[in-house]
Design a protein around this nucleic acid. Structure first.
Lengths: 230, 230
DNA sequence: CGAATATATTGTAAAAAATACAATAATTAA
DNA sequence: TTAATTATTGTATTTTTTACAATATATTCG
């Protein structure tokens, strides 16, 4: 390569993760309280600059791993943001990912760059630095559209869940309501959610049956041309 | 900023465009014959390194503009590729876009970096440099999934088109076949394709009616909760 | 133990959408 | 006028979606 390319090799690339979690109060996003400049002492999306010797996806996974201590997190690249002035230190492109985690598996895992992390209800997100509010809005739309066509909702629920919980998850994310009977009919007819034979315990009313998602059955269905669509 | 960030600002970012076109022989992709290193004298996706003072989308649009001479091209970001060794000159991330153009509006528009450009049928794509075959495969899947849920197919057709052409477009992209009667019933029931009152000329058989896409009607429908799904 | 409370579970009829299927119409060319 | 070629259209059947409310199972409290 001759010198005419030099001026291009002065950009940085970061990853930013929109980490979703879900509990009985609704959909939540994990934010970190920045302990370093720029935007020290602000809530922001967890992210990091990428070292030149690290693959994109590895970098995104490492951020998540450091933050949550969890392995095998469901992640998906959503969009790359690259406005000229989005970062005060220079030209930084950021590749955004969304991640879905089981909120009850999450244990706070202090890392060197995050003083603190906390779950924020999706409807109570503060002003975020950089273009993080824009990224979050994008991620929310992506999740909404994705969850209707792929069985990824289960990533947000415990291994065993009730149909009421499942319905509530879909209702939160899609911002709509379903008829209880029709929702159950449809979900169960898809044949990849199976009864565990177990029931809820420690509830003060009729306990619900516990179900689990059967990924193997789902991929069998896909191979026969089945298309999930809620 | 202090010196500890310096090592991150040594990456380059490029854009690569997967430009789709369609005619009676099927779906096509526009490739350029590279006149400069690296990979001089290879067919490749049209793309360019991004200057530090250029926004991502502006850069992608400029590549298309220089290549086709067309304005207002339908473009959409699809994915960012960033494997460590994907570029021989250093760490280059590339943001891939797909673009849909009306193939008959396209006139070859020689640009400084492209010696030649040509349409390749989607089934006859040669080996491409970098990870361009991977990018192309990704774009094809994206187009397939997108075209079922958004009325973007019209971007590939002339302003006035026959229902047979429209059906053939969908069949090419989705790699399936539709029943003629059912396809027409469904498309026309969606109410945003209107009869122009015109007919084909210079055909040696019964001429077909010419229709046009009505974007205004489509957005009205969307606002009433309508969801396009083919 | 019975009643009150709370949530879970289930079926059916009507409407809408998807599917399967083939005859007729309009044009040019011979 | 006929042959050739493609365009256009309808209907009956099946499947899916929708709308709608009564009964079941557990706990807690008198």
């Amino acid at each position: 390569m001759d010198g005419k390319f030099e001026s291009y090799f002065k950009a940085a690339v970061s990853v930013d993760n929109v980490v979703f979690g879900f509990d009985h109060t609704g959909l939540k996003v994990l934010l970190i309280y920045r302990g370093a400049d720029p935007y020290r002492n602000c809530w922001a999306l967890p992210g990091d600059l990428i070292s030149l010797d690290t693959n994109l996806i590895d970098s995104a996974e490492k951020v998540l791993q450091d933050l949550t201590g969890l392995e095998e997190i469901y992640m998906e690249q959503i969009h790359t943001f690259g406005k000229v002035d989005r970062h005060p230190y220079g030209r930084v492109f950021t590749v955004a990912y969304f991640a879905l985690i089981k909120i009850e598996d999450y244990h706070l895992h202090p890392s060197s760059w995050a003083e603190e992390a906390a779950w924020f209800p999706i409807s109570e997100i503060p002003d975020l630095p950089f273009d993080h509010n824009e990224i979050l809005a994008f991620a929310k739309e992506q999740l909404k559209s994705k969850i209707r066509r792929q069985p990824i909702g289960f990533e947000l629920l415990p291994k065993h869940f009730t149909l009421t919980e499942l319905q509530s998850l879909y209702e939160s994310i899609l911002e709509t309501e379903f008829d209880v009977r029709n929702f159950r009919k449809k979900i169960l007819s898809m044949d990849f959610i199976s009864d565990t034979g177990l029931k809820q315990t420690s509830v003060t009313h009729r306990p619900a049956k516990l179900y689990k998602y059967n990924a193997k059955r789902y991929s069998n269905l896909i191979n026969t041309g089945f298309a999930f669509d809620l």
